[in-house]
């Protein structure tokens, strides 16, 4: 279980304090599927980065299976079984897809199967360099593959759907479902997508640095529909509902 206790994250700008996260308390149970949603700038990505150790909280604790990991660095947390898929993954000149998957896997993996899970053909991609020749969508899918390749206790995905075309996105939803069924990983996905919200067992709404609501997919989708017709639709504002 991953617990977040009284977590605050404050930054200073021009001598003024900005409270990005204000006293967050959350418990993520083992093998459960969570979606964190809410408006942009609400603190979702910051929370994800704090879980991975990329950002240090101003105060509060992060506890993994009873152990306080607040002071642990990124590498230590990775070794303890926490994984994080970047919203905007970095590129590596000269490093091949296969190299990155090999670094990712702490057990024998079949890279072909993992690439297939994210909708990429292994033959075409294993030897490709993770450089500017990959499109944003390809890069994003490879990023997700590096997380799937690992045997994790907690996997955090920061907007995995961003930059991925509709067809691949459908495949991706199946992959998350499979990941959830196959491994005992706690999955936390930051997302606005209905299809991903639909996979979740619990939905956490974060807005203005606070937990606004902890709810179910049924409730949240009903709320969204009421507030903004067409929300969460795969075609966003281009579909009939969206243009009403």
């Amino acid at each position: 279980m991953l617990e977040i206790k009284d977590l605050r994250f404050t930054v200073q700008k021009d001598g003024q304090d900005f409270h990005i996260l204000k006293k967050i308390n959350l418990s993520f149970e083992d093998n459960k599927f969570y979606v964190i949603t809410g408006p942009n700038g609400g603190g979702k990505s910051t929370l994800a980065k704090i879980i991975m150790g990329i950002e240090q909280p101003s105060s509060g604790q992060i506890i993994l299976n009873g152990e306080d990991i607040t002071e642990k660095d990124i590498t230590e947390r990775a070794k303890m079984g926490i994984g994080y898929a970047f919203q905007t993954p970095p590129r590596f000149k000269g490093v091949k897809v296969q190299d990155l998957l090999e670094i990712s896997a702490n057990k024998t993996i079949n890279p072909c199967e993992i690439l297939h899970d994210v909708g990429l053909c292994a033959q075409d991609y294993l030897e490709r360099e993770i450089d500017g020749s990959l499109s944003g969508g390809e890069l994003k899918r490879i990023e997700i593959a590096t997380i799937i390749a690992r045997d994790l206790k907690v996997a955090v995905f920061d907007e995995p759907e961003a930059g991925i075309d509709l067809w691949s996105f459908q495949k991706l939803s199946e992959t998350f479902k499979k990941l959830h069924e196959k491994y005992k990983t706690t999955i936390i996905i930051i997302s606005h997508q209905e299809r991903i919200i639909n996979l979740s067992e619990e939905v956490i709404v974060i807005a203005e640095g606070n937990i606004k609501e902890i709810t179910t997919k049924e409730e949240i989708l009903k709320d969204f529909e009421k507030q903004s017709p067409g929300f969460g639709c795969d075609f966003n504002e281009n579909c009939e509902k969206g243009t009403v």
Binding site: M52, I54, I74, T75, F86, G94, T146
Partner: peptide, 25 residues
């Protein structure tokens, strides 16, 4: 972010740096 990515896969700062340089060269 390259270092952070590799560290988040379990490499130390030194290992991550060595990996990036080896790939680059």
């Amino acid at each position: 972010d390259q270092l952070i990515k590799l560290k988040s896969l379990g490499l130390t700062e030194e290992e991550a740096e060595a990996k990036i340089l080896a790939g680059f060269l």
